[in-house]
Amino acid sequence: MNAHQLAGAAARLKVNIEEKSFRTSDGGTIEVLRDLNFEVGENEFACVLGPSGCGKTTMLRILLGLDREFRGSVQLPGKVEARMGAVFQEPLLLPWRTVEQNVRLALPTHLRDTSLDQLFASLGLAKMRGFYPSELSLGLARRAAIARALAIEPDILLLDEPFVSLDASTAQQLRHLLLGVWSDRPTTALMVTHNLQEAIMLSDRIVVLSDRPTHVLGTFDIRLPRNYRNEQVNADLLRAFREKFAGIRTEP
């Protein structure tokens, strides 16, 4: 009953998950997602915001095609087969390959010989190309994971809380780096987070999710271009968001 369709001309992401549940070890079932429907437009950066444990990662695994046990349909952008750039919660670099090998291995065959100089330079990884992942800090490993996701010139970029367990300044620096490389070649992007300020800083649209069974509570569109956003504007946006979604548990 589920389908991974392709959009064809329309480079939109359409998520229509009717139901997704897990079987528990004692034989019962837990319903995780219920009537989860939203769309992300072409080259739009969307954030999915929701309380911890609400099934955001489950939804992302469905989008990535790693979990096909669900009812509903998912339509990914892309011509033949959506090329997906994924940044997981953990960097998931192969520890036995260098940073550059990790990025090159992910490239589709026609991009195998492409120059990665500019990408590595803009992510500040130029000197770490020959390093093994165990020699990198978490922040640098995340950068390498972002480099891998963007190097493949993805039709859609899917990010699962890529800035958690970093100190505030490293996370902020990484957000700017991500925005920088994403703006060089915009693509439809969906980032899962539970950090509202991060969502306001990065996204064109925030999709707010409920507790389990998860569905969309509402969306919050930010039409202001990112280069006009500053601390004052972000604070106003934050207030507007809080008014619209009063009573939602979000991190400060």
């Binding site: 990535l64 095609g65 790693l66 087969e81 090329r83 997906m84 994924a86 997981f88 953990e90 998931l92 192969l94 291995l105 992910a106 589709p108 891998r148 493949i152």
Partner: peptide, 10 residues
Amino acid sequence: RYAEMAAVYR
């Protein structure tokens, strides 16, 4: 998780 990463990146 490595197999999943490999699946996502085809």
